[in-house]
């Protein structure tokens, strides 16, 4: 199927993006989630606003404590180490497992967070890392809680993600990541993440959920059926074992 007719606009600055993002308009970064939805006519925008060339959305800054990555950073740039890694390899590992290289060359960190598919990788990873999402509205939103419900975020209409601020992990800090899927490159059926201080269950058909112990899964994820709860427990247990091995 082909998308509905729409207008294509490219924003060169953040102000231009704000001005173009009126009702009926949709921001587009890599187009790797929007494209399929447009082709299936699940989304029918009047205008697409290409935001990935806005200068503030590219590049990165680093401080003693944080790395701030532009929202339009691609999965492949993270995979290849073309941007710094402050997570002792966790982010590079995750990036390499998202979709396929041809998709990773275009799909972006910000697009993935804004798209808010619970089965996607970055929403879970950013929540587990305690990252902060920076927006065109000047807001700083904790990644934990940013995904409110499937395909629903804390963003206001017309507001876009400009960057993500990721806390630097201590040198040598270990992590574990377990993505359960049927085939390499597919969305997860369950995600387990273990950082030095946290456990997280992701791809749970709702917000990625921080846990104290694996045993808390039934109480913390009551909306999942028992089989999905067991899969979540397997993912988190494996992540924990990977971290502690």
């Amino acid at each position: 199927m082909k998308p509905v007719a729409f207008e294509h606009a490219t924003a060169a600055t953040l102000d231009e993006a704000r001005a173009l993002l009126t009702t009926g308009a949709k921001p587009m970064a890599g187009g790797q989630s929007l494209g399929p939805m447009l082709n299936l006519r699940l989304v029918r925008p009047e205008r697409l606003v290409d935001i990935k060339r806005v200068p503030g959305l590219r590049g990165f800054t680093e401080t003693e404590t944080h790395l701030t990555l532009g929202a339009a950073t691609t999965h492949a740039e993270i995979e290849d180490g073309r941007v710094p890694d402050v997570t002792n390899g966790l982010m590079r590992h995750v990036a390499g497992g998202i979709a396929y290289r041809a998709v990773r060359n275009r799909g972006t960190l910000g697009g993935s967070l804004a798209h808010a598919d619970p089965a996607a990788d970055w929403p879970s990873v950013m929540a587990a890392l305690g990252a902060t999402i920076l927006t065109s509205g000047g807001r700083r939103l904790p990644a934990d809680g940013f995904l409110r419900a499937p395909f629903t975020t804390a963003l206001e209409p017309g507001e876009i993600i400009t960057a993500v601020e990721i806390p630097r992990q201590p040198p040598g800090a270990r992590w574990g990541y377990c993505k359960i899927n049927r085939k390499i490159g597919e969305f997860a059926k369950a995600i387990g993440i273990a950082t030095p201080t946290r456990l997280l269950a992701g791809a749970v058909e709702g917000p990625p959920t921080l846990l104290d112990r694996v045993e808390d899964i039934p109480a913390r994820l009551p909306w999942l059926d028992p089989a999905a709860q067991r899969l979540a427990a397997i993912a988190v247990t494996r992540a924990q074992a990977m971290r502690d091995s």
């Binding site: 953040l14 200068p55 503030g56 590219r58 590049g59 532009g70 073309r82 000047g138």
Partner: peptide, 20 residues
């Protein structure tokens, strides 16, 4: 590869990569 370059403009926080 697509080079990582950011123009210095714009109020939001992301700017040119420091040499550090």
């Amino acid at each position: 590869p697509r080079p990582v370059v950011a123009a210095p403009a714009a109020p939001p926080p992301v700017a040119v990569a420091p040499a550090a």
